[in-house]
Write a protein that binds this DNA or RNA. Structure first.
Lengths: 356, 356
DNA sequence: CATTTCGCTTTGATCGTTCAAATCAGAATG
DNA sequence: CATTCTGATTTGAACGATCAAAGCGAAATG
């Protein structure tokens, strides 16, 4: 009476047993309608809510997904993780799950934390981000039989066909193809590509998208090579690289880039050179892109989050229920969306970076 | 035997009772050393870890802090929340707490979620961010008697003296004073201020810091007014405002700004105008600032997080233990730190934004 | 020597729920 | 009409820990 109402309080008021109340809460369909109504009434009247820990103890499920909050030295794109986290949390709540945060300095530390959370039964599934080829973590999780999904492909020989583990990823290739095609469609004659130094699994894939668009317009391999710019994921590095490049190749009138950071560097370089005719596209659709009016590729993180939850819990399940990954059912490749803004080419409706 | 070991398994191996094992885990000092050793041995041998939910059920404590992951339309500065979250999570784990995420579209929605999490006993304390004057949420939380700390002052008449509730904040005024003084020290003769339209609690406070520095150099009120630029938290808006301003006041050779977004706008404007002699400082020390080499005010979010946990749990406590806020013990005002980079003034060691 | 004190350990109850099996009333079956 | 079946509800036993109080042996006290 003093504290929060328990299931017994509800049972007493509704003149039924504990278990019936439990049934009304967990599987209403097996309770006779009138009984159900009576119980629901009592629940509403008392403001009863099940004690999550009691339920978790008994059912041996934590209904919690653990995810590492990376230290984000990733520059601007850190906000991608942020938005993904937001979408994941929202989706998780809709399915009766919670999202628990943890931190770690490196992958080994992450494994340690996951082990702890698993042993404490604080989380029963995990989501990994920024996976690399032959990732320590995925191997370990598979060995342990811990349910997990990665946001990011394993980038193994045959990602789609050979389901080592469950993953969701964004089709960067399609994204860059769209960006390049948009630049061409809005009047660009020579579209360069600004990406990260190869080899870079994600980067090479994005470059392929640009190459797709260019090839279908008749560009040769050597032309593609001569239109490629490389820079580390860093605004300054990108600025320097683009300035140098435009000096050699003033005929280039558009640049599709692999990230908003690179794009920002390109934007600063072209502005400084007075080359405001050069159209630029970014990737990630970060707040910075929105802020400076940059056309960018949006990853649709809501769909990514949905995909993750679907792989973890089934299409509409409310429990972690992961099977062996089966071909065709273990992956989701989300097609991104091009968000067109002023600096993306053509008429430049809002002249964003030229002097007033 | 099949599943994870329980406290009873440990007890059996160590030839002691359940409770003794519990004591070894929770208050080792009351157990006789040899007994303790035996139990610890058994724990290690079995790899025993207490079942978090069982513990929470019995002790009626969730040992969990809830925090809303804002949708971050805040532009670049979204990363501040991110870094704070990281620091908070790290600190929380060190004190045996977990951090649970939730989302909401607005403050009313946040209240709803908090109520749920409280009722489900999923979290027993909350951290609020970006509080406004006369905040719906703080009022409600106080009424409900739910432990919480805000990151951000209430901005009431006398924040420091009158402890309505527990809060931690960064001393933006001191930050901008330091920035302005740095600009002056490195050779600037006329330092303008670029901030958000008044009234803005945070913004006005930061402006005051700049004004402090200027006044002590003998600037009059009217001079200060003529050196103030206003723009919304938006790169483009800032760029436009700064371009206009520099047209009127070409004598200005430095700009202290209230945020990295504004600073980026200023940077783009000065670059475009060829005024690379104008030194600029930002606020928040976001990845963007680092990327473009911008001197910026670092909020020291680790200290903020520590302050939050201290107010919630006491100096070294491992439990939520909040009293009535008492004068002098209910607040923490963290002094930020100026991170000096190339574009911050003076010699411009690394010419970041001029054409190559 | 009986008694109190002290330090450590054990015992029994309990936290609030779900599981598994038992019960029960009424309908359907032969 | 006795019997089986069926759907809805109840009962007793966990889940794995901590709390509160009791127990116990050795040392201290009168």
């Amino acid at each position: 009476m003093a504290g929060k109402p328990t299931i017994d309080d509800v049972a007493r008021i509704a003149q039924v047993s504990r278990q019936t109340v439990s049934n009304v809460v967990n599987s209403p369909e097996i309770v006779r309608p009138e009984t159900r109504a009576r119980v629901e009434d009592a629940i509403g009247q008392l403001g009863y809510r099940p004690h999550a820990s009691a339920r978790r103890l008994r059912s041996q499920k934590s209904s919690t997904i653990g995810i590492r909050l990376a230290a984000m030295g990733d520059g601007i794109s850190g906000s991608v993780l942020d938005r993904f986290l937001h979408a994941l949390t929202e989706g998780a709540y809709a399915r009766g799950m919670r999202v628990l945060l943890f931190t770690a300095d490196d992958d080994a530390g992450e494994i340690e934390q996951i082990e702890r959370l698993r042993d404490d039964r604080d989380a029963d599934a995990f989501v990994l981000t920024s996976t690399s080829h032959s990732d320590l973590r995925t191997r370990w999780l598979l060995d342990q039989g811990i349910p997990f999904v990665t946001f990011g492909r394993p980038w193994a020989a045959d990602d789609m066909g050979d389901p080592m583990h469950h993953w969701v990823d964004v089709d960067g290739r399609a994204g860059l193809r769209a960006a390049a095609e948009h630049l061409i469609a809005t009047g660009a004659r020579r579209v360069a590509y600004l990406g990260w130094p190869s080899p870079s699994a994600t980067g090479d894939d994005r470059r392929r998208g640009w190459a797709d668009a260019m090839s279908s317009r008749g560009a040769s391999e050597s032309e593609l090579a001569s239109l490629s710019i490389e820079a580390e994921e860093d605004v300054t590095a990108a600025r320097v690289a683009v300035a140098e490049f435009l000096d050699r190749r003033p005929d280039v009138d558009a640049i599709a880039t692999a990230s908003d950071s690179l794009a920002l560097g390109a934007l600063i370089a072209t502005t400084a050179l007075g080359r405001t005719d050069v159209a630029i596209t970014g990737f990630d659709n970060t707040p910075v892109a929105a802020a400076v009016g940059l056309t960018s590729v949006e990853q649709r993180l809501g769909m990514v989050a949905d995909g993750v939850l679907e792989l973890l819990m089934g299409v509409s399940g409310r429990d972690i229920s992961m099977r062996e990954p089966r071909p065709g059912e273990a992956h989701r490749l989300v097609t991104p969306e091009l968000v067109v803004r002023g600096s993306g080419g053509g008429e430049r409706p809002v002249p964003v970076v030229d002097p007033m």
